[in-house]
Design a protein around this nucleic acid. Sequence first.
RNA 1: GGAAGGGUGGAUGAGUGGUUUAAAUCGCACGCCUGGAAAGCGUGUUCAGGUUUUAUGGCCUGACGCGGGUUCGAAUCCCGCCCCUUCCGCCA
Length: 427
Amino acid sequence: MIDINLLRTHLQDVVTSLKTRGFVFDNQFFLEIESKRKNIQIKTQEVQQERNSLSKEIGILKSKGEDASQTLEKVAQISSLSKQLESDLNEVQELLTNYLLQIPNLPHSSVPVGSDEKSNVIVKTEGKIKSYDFPVMDHVDIGELIGLDFEVSTKISGSRFSLMKGDLARLHRAIGQFMLDMHTENHGYTECYTPYLVNDQSLLGTGQLPKFGDDLFMTKKSDNENLYLIPTSEVPLTNTVRDLIISEDDLPIKLTAHTPCFRSEAGSYGKDTRGMIRQHQFDKVEMVQITKPEDSYKALEEMLGHAENILNELELPYQVVTLSSGDMGFGAAKTYDIEVWLPSQNQYREISSISNCESFQARRLKARYKNHDGKNELVHTLNGSGLAVGRTMVAILENNQDKNGNVHIPRVLQKYMAGKEIIYSKK
RNA sequence: GGAAGGGUGGAUGAGUGGUUUAAAUCGCACGCCUGGAAAGCGUGUUCAGGUUUUAUGGCCUGACGCGGGUUCGAAUCCCGCCCCUUCCGCCA
């Protein structure tokens, strides 16, 4: 949620900024509803004040044993007026916050302006793309030779799920373990185990609700309560600080978790239907940082470095792009995507997304810290994949294949695979 | 799932319809005292919002788990829900 005071004081700037990310701000609606809110609120508070003082008078009169019927009569009218105004005020305020919840975050000044991914800017390209003297297979063809079985997963659950067996399943586990170990042992994150089902308050806090409910899998807890499968562990990790006032000494908070993620991919029919690129269920190791406002952009660079370290260790070629204003997610002020090289597609594909949400989520979460002046100030929240496990495995299969369809296990993963160096194909 | 008890400012905890402006204690901050400290004494110490002010601030509204209701007036009474504790049942 963006700061309503910004809308009151710098409306035009906000409108212009939002336009760069394709959001059309309803100026007239806002001004209308805001002035209505102001009028009703002032009037409501006046009436409440009068009611309170008259009610107090009644109390005093009665305690003295005097007759209060005249005052009672007077306050009866005021009281019903007050009720009416209170409900009017509620209505207007609900309208206003509902609108505010729909508004995406403002892009940071360093974000390239553009309407879609075509305006993304490549920051750097790392690693050497191998050349292959044989026709490369994609990960589905390789996978089928070493334990990837979409026929079975389709039978069990339908499309966009996968089932792995044997060394491949172990490789998948090894990747997650390795990433988690890197973040906890070398990057200073605290490992977390989190719920995979979360309530709607949590999703409202991180911005998936109310606007993107269609992308979530929902379960029913009871007649009047639903729980949602997490689309990313950003949700539980970031919500750890909801409704908290954190002491300055405890910042930054750096959390990581390896969890499955569940997405209905409602708006992506026909995209990446083959293979493991776009699934309803996938594993991801997530990094989350909670920082002081002045530290958040330093933290963003740091997190990018942490994700890059993983790819460097795995010896996978990648590039880093800064997302343009129109390509960023709802809550982000600035986002870096890391894209890994996939030989079968002859292009880089997203494997990580690292965002600074500034105070956007913190405002929804009521996540604050006590600054050195003793004032409560909203924290900044950042999240990033470090990395998507399934897509990392895809990249390893494709980049490390040989002409016999064997997959060479990256050196850093071998200790997680009992020293195994190659997964041999059944070809 | 069943039964009982509970949820009040940073902590403990009092408060069963009206001077509650949420007591008291602890903690914390500042001041006095002191060579310095402790003790003691004094003062202060929640959040959100509105409005006004150059500003410190002032005035006002709301918040006692959440949401409704009754009432001129609700922390207090009524209804629904959530969470916690203990016991029972089930279960890994």
